[in-house]
């Protein structure tokens, strides 16, 4: 059997439609992770000992175990303790948790680069804590972590491919279904690869454009 480009070309529309699933889920995950990561960072800044201790363990756990296993935990283990989630919800939750942790850790590194003088000035102006965060810290923080966030977005997109393992019908699972019917796994998988290539290269390029406009250049 030789590689048939025509077949591959014919597949692309189907795969592109299936890819919308990945895009939709990725968007949800990224939004959840941004909210979660920011909330986690603010919580950690309160430095409540027991809370931070638990969070530290959680971070070590999330960073020390495979994403696939984390997905399995949400999909297989949660039902066993009563929480029955659909594959999609379980998958989105798992990847969002994973991403929140990484975003929070990234923010931790970026926070140190913020000028303490601004905090002092804001406090001297009687700004309450939540406004110091909202008006002074977060805007700068987001500009500083923007490049890392763009990278994290590509990682999330790649993560959604793993959801095919827990039966979510995304582009990879679609490709596998087509392959099992047509006995041409090579072309279909290359097609799926091309879809991800297109998505992630676009994200990176857009990211670079946006960074040029908004991100803070280190002096």
């Amino acid at each position: 059997m030789s590689f048939q480009f025509a077949y591959l070309a014919g597949l692309m529309p189907n795969l592109a439609v299936a890819a919308l699933v990945n895009l939709r889920l990725s968007a949800m995950i990224i939004v959840l992770a941004l909210i979660g990561g920011t909330a986690l960072t603010i919580l950690r800044s309160l430095k409540i000992r027991p809370v931070n201790a638990i969070i530290a363990v959680l971070i070590s756990f999330i960073r020390g175990t495979p994403l696939l296993i984390q997905i399995f935990l949400f999909y297989y283990v949660l039902p066993a303790i009563g929480l029955d989630l659909s594959p999609t919800v379980a998958g989105v939750a798992a990847i969002a948790l994973n991403s929140s942790i990484f975003i929070s850790e990234t923010m931790r590194g970026a926070l140190i680069t913020i000028d303490p003088g601004q905090i002092e000035a804001a406090t001297a102006l009687s700004l309450p804590r939540h406004l110091v965060w909202a008006k002074v810290i977060l805007p700068q923080l987001f500009r500083r972590v923007l490049p890392v966030l763009v990278n994290e977005a590509t990682i999330v997109v790649k993560g959604t491919a793993l959801l095919s393992v827990i039966t979510v019908v995304d582009v990879l699972r679609t490709a596998q279904q087509i392959a099992s019917a047509s006995y041409r796994p090579f072309e279909t998988l290359i097609g799926a690869a091309l879809v991800f290539l297109a998505i992630n290269l676009t994200i990176s390029l857009l990211g670079r454009r946006v960074e040029g406009r908004f991100a803070v250049q280190r002096a």
Partner: peptide, 18 residues
């Protein structure tokens, strides 16, 4: 770096028999 590892893996695993 743009393609998920699972797809890289599948492409090689299912493509090799070709």
């Amino acid at each position: 770096r743009a393609i998920p590892f699972i797809i890289i893996l599948f492409v090689i695993y299912y493509g090799l028999p070709f």
